[in-house]
Design a protein around this nucleic acid. Structure first.
Length: 320
DNA sequence: CCCCTCACCTGATCGC
DNA sequence: TGCGATCAGGTGAGGG
């Protein structure tokens, strides 16, 4: 997937188009795309009808849209996860269906008029669902909900935190996901403590969304390359300063990807308007097997780990 | 709680 | 051209 930067690009693209919009019609073409919805298809459809979307929020790779139901109730959100291959595309109301369209939401926006959200997903690992909102334990905003792309200057500072109660609430099924490293309320001390007591290798830890969210296979490999750490180095063997360095590199990698609009290796991963991203050329390790390490020239290796590829420089990233 | 394996899915591509 | 094998950016249930 879509890892944090790609999901944030989608969220930022959707936010201005969906906030304040009324859902006029919902069609579920693939019921399996509601796997995480606790109820029948009709329940999903009926409860969204005439609802007004209040915001677009993201934590890690989870995206959700708090809404006011037709009766005014604001205790629920529409949750979306893109899985490996999902997209939420903004379309014109009467556009032809995309090839792998699973769910269609027709919206009426006060200034943008009639638009459509198309949930497209090849592998159906992604999903949409309605879920109850519950208060965050720390009372902080549950995720990022700015009107612009996270980290972009135009957005910084000019947006006082919206005190709307639904923004300090999190969907029940997202509550176990840790805050992501770009979240101002990310608990660094808890992260260091849990890393120190973990028995697994460091990449496995980075991919554990309950420990730190938003990182997937690409950015795990890129961050570990930047920090010169082997993917299977035991967490507990890393000094606190090495873990701090790793966190710095993780943030740098995520911000860089955000600045470039998210990565996209093939037509599968596209931004909210269906346009391809363009970050692939600046990857240092992921997918670079056989090519010289940009730091030392040693060929990058690819090995199978956790049933997926791990890419690293055997010279810079030694197991020790 | 922690840790690991596996199931869940389709479609594109590659080698024969 | 066909066909099987392989691969793809994730998550969570369920076992030890």
């Amino acid at each position: 997937m879509p890892e944090l930067p790609e999901v944030e690009v989608v969220r930022a693209g959707l936010h201005p188009a969906v906030t304040g919009a009324v859902i006029e019609r919902v069609e579920v073409l693939e019921p399996r795309s509601l796997r995480r919805h606790d109820g029948p298809v009709d329940d999903f459809v009926d409860r969204l009808r005439e609802a007004t979307i209040l915001s677009a929020v993201r934590r890690g790779k989870f995206l959700w849209f708090p809404f006011a139901a037709a009766d005014g109730d604001t205790s629920h959100a529409l949750v979306a996860h893109l899985g490996m291959s999902g997209q939420v595309l903004l379309r014109e109301r009467h556009a032809d269906d995309d090839r792998l369209l699973r769910i269609r939401l027709d919206l009426a926006h006060p200034t943008r008029g009639d638009i459509r959200l198309a949930f497209v997903d090849q592998r159906i690992f992604g999903s949409m669902a309605l879920d109850t909102l519950e208060p965050t334990p720390d009372g902080e905003p549950a995720g990022y909900s700015g009107s612009g792309l996270l980290g972009h200057d135009a957005e910084q500072g000019d947006e006082p935190q919206d005190p709307a109660p639904w923004l300090s609430s999190i969907p029940h099924q997202v509550a176990h996901i840790a805050r992501d490293p770009l979240d101002p309320a990310f608990d660094e001390h808890a992260f260091f403590a849990r890393m120190a007591s973990r028995g697994s290798g460091v990449k496995r830890a980075l991919l554990d969304q309950g420990l730190v969210s938003g990182i997937g296979n690409i950015y795990a490999d890129e961050s570990l390359w930047a920090a010169k750490i082997h993917f299977d180095q035991p967490c507990a063997s890393l000094t606190r300063s090495r873990v701090k360095l790793l966190l710095v590199e993780i943030r740098a990698v995520l911000y860089k990807a955000l600045a470039e609009g998210g990565t996209s290796f093939d037509a599968q991963y596209v931004n909210v308007n269906g346009q391809s991203g363009y970050f692939a050329h600046s990857l240092n390790a992921y997918g670079q097997q056989g090519k010289p390490c940009p730091r030392c020239g040693t060929p990058i290796k690819r090995v199978s780990f956790m049933n997926r590829g791990s890419h690293f420089c055997p010279q810079c990233q030694r197991l020790r």
